[in-house]
Design a protein around this nucleic acid. Structure first.
Length: 188
DNA sequence: CATGGGATTGACT
DNA sequence: GTCAATCCCATGC
């Protein structure tokens, strides 16, 4: 499997977010298939880059295909892939994985054994893969954290989770029928 | 320099 | 269903 090229990320974030479903996020000996994503764009207030360029959002304004990792609620590291050309701040939050490689290592880090619970949330998957803040800004093709090409998946879209602003935008995407998503979808 | 608010999770009523 | 944990950083004085 090969790493996604920079050009994959150098596009509108609403195109990239659903196409990341089915691709593989890898760190060290652990990896998983991406089954849930959310898009964020500087033009809407839920995006950290809405406030402009600050030390925190510098990576978001940088070149596409890099990792944006930040601490949430003082406890969890959340992982994003930076998209769109440098100067256009946007990112895809990876919200859930289907565990692939290194499952015993994930179980040890998480202290749980059910595969559905290892990576079914943005804070859970970073813990399972050992992704921490120092990986912020890394190149997703050549760095310690990589995203590898995969097969396109059928998906569903809906509102983003856990935010208080711009909640009306249907910018959450997940693989149709996956049991590894962070939150279930309402009945069709 | 002090303050306040989270792109969450897990434990508990 | 409710709620605390915990820390980076944006904002305002």
């Amino acid at each position: 499997m090969s790493a996604l090229p920079r050009a994959f990320y150098d596009r509108p974030v609403l195109d990239v977010a659903p196409e990341l479903l089915g691709c593989v996020l890898a760190h060290g000996h652990t990896s998983g298939v991406i089954v849930e994503t959310e898009a964020y764009h500087f033009t809407e207030p839920a995006c950290h880059a809405f406030v402009g360029v600050t030390p925190r959002t510098a990576v978001l304004h940088g070149p596409p295909g890099t990792a944006y990792v930040y601490r949430s609620y003082g406890i969890h590291a959340l992982f994003n892939a930076v998209c769109e050309p440098a100067g256009v701040a946007a990112a895809v939050l990876i919200r859930a994985l289907e565990p692939l490689d290194g499952i015993p290592e994930m179980i040890a880090r998480r202290g749980l054994t059910r595969e559905e619970d290892l990576c079914s949330g943005p804070g859970k998957l970073t813990q399972a893969l050992g992704i921490e803040l120092h990986l912020n800004g890394g190149d997703l093709r050549t760095g310690p954290v990589r995203i590898l090409a995969g097969e396109p998946r059928r998906y569903v879209a809906g509102p983003r989770i856990g935010i208080t602003k711009a909640t009306e935008l249907p910018w959450r995407f997940s693989v149709a029928g996956s049991r590894f998503v962070s939150r279930p979808w309402p009945r069709p």
